[in-house]
Write a protein that binds this DNA or RNA. Structure first.
Lengths: 199, 199
DNA sequence: TTAACAAATGAACTATGATTCACTTCTTGA
DNA sequence: TCAAGAAGTGAATCATAGTTCATTTGTTAA
């Protein structure tokens, strides 16, 4: 007599939500967050505008969720790149490489995550994103300093500087894949100098 | 018989335009570009909304002009700080100090120029702003490299990395003036290491 | 089959702020 | 003083997207 959500329906709903997130991310990959409008998303996912609001409270929540999802993946990739690397210097190089290579692989998307003008709510999430990267580098730097591998310094400052340096130096050339390999090598050297790695 | 613009009128118009730009900048200083709306500007300058459009084609032109005006001043300040400094290393320090001190002096404004989400047209101007800073540093670095003061490197890459590093490392702490002096010293050291200044 | 309720729809509504324009108020020079 | 035309005004309009909600369609279990 009463309607009750059954497993197949729950599954279908979960799948639709996933599909919406996938569609949303693909819109962002293609045209940045500017391309992520509710109308475009609804069209892309083949549902109505109203349905989007059945799955997301509002645009901010949707955009933030897309952003956080993607950036968590990015940060995880860099974190994993650090694992198994012994020296602090090696970790700086591994992290830089990973970050840079991924950015070169998907320039528009990297730009959307790092630098595109976005709504305030997403900007909050972006601060977290940067903090996460910074924390990652900070730990490596602190270790390098205390082991004497790196020169004495304020690890948190160097860490945010590195994050800024990576972001800025990648944004311009992003897309010129030819020079990327050479550039990434140069970037690694630069980062090593910045942390004062004993040559 | 015919109306013809006389010198006093031309002067009054020029002054009003100046006043509008001043008002606009003060709005941005106080609340970022978000606070720069035509209505607010008109109110602040004591003119009508329509009058603003007599002096500026549209919002984009107004915002861009405010931005460019301010950033040209900033870049000039840094450029002047480099003058009269002999060594390339000294110039790196002077440029960094100048940039950082000015940012600490007007945090909200610095944020507006460096990182605030803005309309696309202003973003264009921001690219130029960064290019200008980068060019400034690039010249210094190239000189340092060829004189042997700095280690071999790709000056343009290091330059944009420095610009990114400065921007990023200042944005977080911006406002905590107490630690600024110490921080600025640390930043200078970091930049010197990044360019591979001989010890 | 059907009552009860959820899911889906999309045209209409809203909110924000830029832009216009019919109109009023100067300014000029004869 | 006066006609020609510029400067100034601000309510009305437009533009863009986000958001709502009355209505339709689908699902459940007795």
């Amino acid at each position: 007599m009463v309607y009750r959500e059954t497993p197949p329906i729950a599954k279908r709903k979960a799948e639709l939500r996933e599909r919406l997130l996938k569609s949303a991310e693909s819109l962002v990959r293609g045209g940045g967050f500017k391309a992520l409008t509710i109308q475009a998303l609804a069209a892309d996912a083949g549902v109505s505008v109203g349905s989007v609001y059945r799955y997301f409270k509002n645009k901010d929540q949707l955009a933030t969720e897309v952003f956080s999802h993607a950036t968590r993946r990015e940060v995880r990739a860099v974190a994993e790149a650090l694992e198994g690397v012994g020296s602090a210097a090696g970790q700086i190089v591994a992290g830089t490489r990973c970050f840079a290579e991924r950015a070169f692989m998907a320039p528009q998307f990297a730009w959307a995550l790092i630098a595109e003008p976005v709504e305030a709510a997403v900007d909050e999430a972006r601060l977290q994103y940067r903090r996460d990267y910074t924390a990652l580098f900070e730990r490596v730097i602190a270790r390098g300093v205390s082991s004497g591998e790196f020169c004495p310094q304020v690890p948190s400052l160097t860490a945010s500087a590195l994050v800024g340096a990576l972001a800025e130096s990648l944004l311009g050339p992003l897309g010129e894949a030819e020079r990327s390999t050479l550039m990434i090598d140069e970037l690694c050297l630069l980062c090593l100098r910045a942390v004062g790695a004993s040559n």
